[in-house]
């Protein structure tokens, strides 16, 4: 069982959460090139390394939270 620590609810079973995706900064629409915008919309790193992700605590406080997870081992930081 994987536990994620919600800032509102504490440690909870990962089954209570929805995975949203890798956390990325949204480029400035007025300045971004088409390649940058395409990368933001469609490209994912998916490295077997530590990755900041956005999760949604659907069956809890209904808040979004950032989870730093190792995609190779499922280990979670913090």
């Amino acid at each position: 069982m994987m536990l994620l620590t919600c800032p509102h609810c504490g440690a909870r079973d990962a089954g209570e959460f929805d995975y949203v995706g890798e956390r990325r900064d949204r480029p400035d629409v007025s300045r971004a090139t088409e390649q940058e915008w395409r990368g933001y919309l469609y490209l994912r790193g998916n490295r077997a390394d530590w990755t900041a992700e956005l999760w949604h605590h659907r069956a809890g406080c209904e808040r979004f939270l950032t989870v730093v997870r190792h995609l190779g081992t499922d280990e979670v930081r913090g």
């Binding site: 609810c9 909870r12 079973d13 089954g15 209570e16 659907r58 069956a59 809890g60 406080c61």
Partner: peptide, 8 residues
């Protein structure tokens, strides 16, 4: 608020 037998 949590999952009870699989439901919220």
């Amino acid at each position: 608020r949590s999952l009870l037998a699989g439901i919220t």
